[in-house]
Amino acid sequence: MKLAANLSMLFTELPFLDRFGAAKAAGFDAVEFLFPYAFPPEDIAMRLAEHGQGLVLHNLPPGDWEAGERGMACDPRRVDEFRAGVALGLRYAVALGVPQVHCMAGLRPADVAPEQAHSTYIANLRHAADQFAAHGIGVLIEPINHFDMPGYFLTGSRQALGILAACARPNLGLQYDIYHMQRMEGELANTIKANLAQIRHIQIADTPGRHEPGTGEINYPYLFRLLDQLGYDGWIGCEYRPQTTTAASLGWLPR
């Protein structure tokens, strides 16, 4: 398996730029994280080069994260802001050599009808996909459970697959987070089997608690064997909150 440490979740006892070295020391040759925008891309690129790591994923700008915003792609009133975020995300993606970015759908405003949010989301995704395609970079969408993120527009794999079909862009794909989809719909193995061609990135955490594999109800040894049997060759992002410390949480890693 190709495992990437999510530096927004792991090694958080360290300043962000020091987490790269800690991840490398723990055996991770690749990393991912939510957002790079608090740092100049040159600083992040320097840490990646210093530790011989690849960056496999980051998100497009989400709006005001600290105020509770979780993207804006489904909001028809913020199309210009979304496009500015695409331009900023593209600048970072090119500078950091990342092969894929995640575009968060956002929370649907109460006064925006679902149909309008849907059409806005598709138009924005097409725009983002076209901008990134010129640089050979993929754009991903991820269903997120509505328990952790109430009001999020994209909550299920069937909905996501329908949106991908409507967008009809070859560099658009599915980011399948096993934790989120266990909470929303279960049926993990069959969903993965049926949609492997659309799945470009996988993220993992156990439930309840969003802790490391082996702490909850998900049969990760079975799912890892399944992914191997199916020939999944993409990255698996370790996007979990350690139950205690990051170091103590790594016992599940294949050695």
Rank of each mutant, 00 (worst) to 15 (best):
K2P: 14
K2W: 09
K2R: 15
L3F: 14
L3G: 07
A4R: 08
A4T: 12
A5K: 01
A5F: 08
S8V: 04
S8E: 05
S8D: 03
M9Y: 15
M9R: 08
L10D: 00
F11V: 07
E13W: 12
D18F: 05
G21Q: 02
A22S: 10
A25C: 09
A30I: 04
E32C: 06
F33K: 01
L34N: 12
Y37C: 11
A38V: 10
F39Q: 06
P41C: 02
D43N: 07
D43S: 14
D43Y: 04
A45R: 09
R47S: 01
L48K: 01
A49Y: 00
G52S: 02
V56Q: 01
L57T: 01
N59R: 01
N59V: 00
D64Y: 09
R70V: 09
G71V: 00
G71C: 01
A73K: 00
A73L: 04
D75A: 09
D75H: 14
R78A: 00
E81G: 12
A87M: 06
L90E: 00
R91C: 07
R91A: 15
A93I: 05
V94N: 04
V94P: 03
L96D: 08
L96S: 03
G97T: 00
Q100K: 15
Q100C: 11
Q100A: 15
C103Y: 01
P109C: 02
D111W: 15
E115F: 14
S119I: 09
A123Y: 12
N124R: 13
H135N: 14
G136F: 11
G136P: 14
V139E: 07
V139L: 08
L140S: 05
L140C: 05
E142Q: 09
P143M: 03
I144R: 05
N145A: 01
N145E: 05
F147T: 15
F147W: 12
D148N: 10
F153S: 05
L154S: 05
G156I: 02
R158S: 15
Q159P: 11
I163F: 13
A165K: 06
A165E: 12
A165C: 12
C167R: 06
R169H: 13
Q175G: 02
Y176K: 08
D177Y: 06
I178L: 07
I178W: 01
G186I: 11
K193M: 11
L196H: 11
A197Y: 10
A197M: 08
R200I: 07
Q203C: 03
I204G: 03
G209A: 07
G214F: 04
G214P: 09
T215G: 05
G216S: 02
E217L: 06
E217F: 02
I218H: 09
N219A: 13
P221H: 06
F224D: 04
F224M: 13
L227C: 10
G231K: 12
G234S: 08
I236L: 05
G237D: 04
E239W: 00
P242N: 05
A247W: 01
A247C: 03
A248W: 06
A248L: 12
S249E: 00
